[in-house]
Write a protein that binds this DNA or RNA. Sequence first.
DNA 1: TATTTTTGGAGCAAACGCGAAACAGAGAAT
DNA 2: ATTCTCTGTTTCGCGTTTGCTCCAAAAATA
Lengths: 212, 212
Amino acid sequence: MNIDQQKIPQATAKRLPLYYRFLENLYHSGKQRVSSTELSDAVKVDSATIRRDFSYFGALGKKGYGYNVQYLLSFFRKTLDQDEVTKVFLVGVGNLGTALLKYNFTKSDNTQIVNAFDVNPDMIGQDISGVEIYHMNDLPDVKKKRDASIAILTVPAPAAQETAEQLVEAGITGILNFTPERLTVPETVRVHHIDLSVELQTLVYFLKNYPL
Amino acid sequence: MNIDQQKIPQATAKRLPLYYRFLENLYHSGKQRVSSTELSDAVKVDSATIRRDFSYFGALGKKGYGYNVQYLLSFFRKTLDQDEVTKVFLVGVGNLGTALLKYNFTKSDNTQIVNAFDVNPDMIGQDISGVEIYHMNDLPDVKKKRDASIAILTVPAPAAQETAEQLVEAGITGILNFTPERLTVPETVRVHHIDLSVELQTLVYFLKNYPL
DNA sequence: TATTTTTGGAGCAAACGCGAAACAGAGAAT
DNA sequence: ATTCTCTGTTTCGCGTTTGCTCCAAAAATA
């Protein structure tokens, strides 16, 4: 199975969480079956693309019927490893970091921020949304106790690279980087960027230069 | 010139803000010239790709020399319309909305949040980081005064679609959507999604299924 | 002057994403 | 039972993007 999963295009992989969340909504609203066109309307992805995305995983649907919501949901749960909660650290409890702490990832994602870190003495020991804030120096120790492999990076830009190195050294293998900095990390560490400024500027540029 | 710009691949367009910001850093640090390989190290984009991205705009560099930072910067400023400040509304002053208000887009982006909107009576009239908060009902009036064409949407998910419709009706043509909701809007409106949960889940999925 | 550096341009192959069309099979209607 | 319709599955081809390689020309350097 793992060999097959290797072949899934990255673009498809990015859409999976989207599908999963919408299926959850459907399930909770009591819907039992769903067609690719319905899904398409909801998640704004071409129905043919959805069908092919699904077909990477084999025959999930029934012809002339559609997809069974519950079956599809349980399948995605397995595929996305939604059974177990993924533990996440958050590093840098500023405005954005605080907002993310209060943003409830757990509810729909089965990911959970288990600890937060900062260097500001005023923040240490505080509790935001049930997450306790430690000093960065405690990272290695905390890592031993709560074995998170992913960190959300929301420190100020000048501290980004240095902090990332600390994270890597402590054994973090995935970083969700909210800083504008392009991080230099070993090849074994995966970094995803969410660059708010770039997103905004790209939108501006597209609006001005790619009229719809 | 506009005809040429149409031909720029979207993938390139998305990288432009990235280049721009790094060039700004270089400029402020006093560097006068830069090579594509230097840029490549910094922004983590293949140097050949960078050269080709640049070459879409004509011959910007000098052979055997590299690129003149100041010239390149001023060129991008023009191309990205960085001369004028793009006005932006922010709708939904919750945790994330507040964080974005405090996040200083203006400094590097020449985009500025000029007004914020909410429906919570306690928020109306408040001032966060110099941005005054109005009631959503005032949107049409404020729009007339401060002609922003872009809105950042940070309302709770259940209110997303309804709010988006209000924005469209008021004449907003670009929405940066931070809600998990997939918005249904007219074709004339461009929506970019930043879906925090999806980003986090995608990272989890990649870590587990695409070993580096 | 000779050498090194670095761009710009062309070309190419591989990967990828996506839309469309053909196909097959299940359910519904008559 | 037969036909019709809907829908998933599969395959195909087109366009985009990317990384790579050459090469020539220009600039800097020694």
